[in-house]
Computed example of a mutant assay.
Amino acid sequence: METKKEIMTKDKIVSLYMDYVLEHGQNPKSVFHFAKANDFEEAEFYTFFGTFEGLEKEIFNLFFENTLELLDKNSEYQEYDMKNKMLGFYFTFFELLTANRSYVVQALKHDSNPIKNLVKLTTLRDSFKKYISLILTDDHRIQQEKLQNFQEKAIQETAWMQLLLTLKFWIDDASPAFEKTDIFIEKSVNVSFELMNVAPMNHLLDFGKFLFKEKIYSRQ
């Protein structure tokens, strides 16, 4: 009796690709060779991905999506304020990265040009920025509407840079169970939310509006 051939899925191709990279110490030379080595049709790859580059971007985005899935299953997470949601995201995200550390480190150190390695994180970047926008609360928004859009983009970019710095720290971390990364996460998130405190900015803007009105009315 002929053995039924396994149906390829997106997750299966991702898993095979990560295994290939780890086992061979390099990326496959072509989609044809990758498919042949894993006994599936080349066309099945293109059902889900256009290039290896697109697949690599999706791998890091899957870490992000899996993180949110785990967080959504936690009823307590839904009640967290923005700061604790960020901490929950970081600890869960880096737990998933640690489970796949060999691949992540190899992927992000593959090219001598760090810019080319960062390209693999572009889809993750877009997803992470949307996540920041979703958890951003009024406590961290400037009251003046005209400045809110600028402020939100600034917070997204700052949060992304913080994630990159944490990722770099984690890659270089040689402490047992990456305990120094946990400390780094907690301290960096605490500092970032101290800097995000918009109360002084709102007071400054209100004072500026007051001075402006006083100056205008004093001329009448």
Rank of each mutant, 00 (worst) to 15 (best):
E2C: 01
E6M: 11
I7Y: 04
M8I: 05
K10C: 02
S15V: 07
Y17V: 05
D19S: 12
H24K: 13
N27R: 11
P28N: 04
S30N: 07
F34V: 06
K36Y: 07
K36T: 10
A37C: 09
N38R: 09
F40L: 08
E41Y: 14
E42I: 03
G50I: 07
E56P: 00
K57Y: 05
L62S: 11
L62D: 11
F64Y: 13
E65F: 10
E65N: 13
N66C: 04
L68H: 06
E69Q: 13
E69M: 09
L70H: 08
K73V: 02
K73M: 10
N74L: 08
S75G: 00
E76N: 14
E76S: 14
D81F: 02
K83M: 14
K85E: 11
G88C: 06
F89Y: 12
F91H: 12
T92M: 13
T92Q: 15
F94H: 01
F94V: 04
L97S: 05
T98R: 09
T98V: 01
A99C: 07
A99F: 01
Q106P: 00
Q106W: 13
A107V: 03
L108E: 05
S112V: 08
K116Y: 07
K116F: 12
N117V: 01
K120H: 09
L124P: 04
S133T: 14
I135M: 08
L136F: 09
D139E: 15
I142V: 15
Q143W: 11
Q143L: 14
L147T: 12
L147W: 13
F150G: 01
Q151V: 10
I155W: 02
T158M: 13
L163H: 06
T166Y: 02
T166E: 06
T166D: 05
L167Y: 04
I171H: 02
A174R: 12
D182P: 04
I183P: 01
F184N: 09
F184C: 06
I185Q: 01
I185C: 02
E186M: 12
K187W: 05
N202T: 09
D206N: 15
D206A: 15
G208A: 15
G208Y: 12
F212H: 13
Y217M: 13
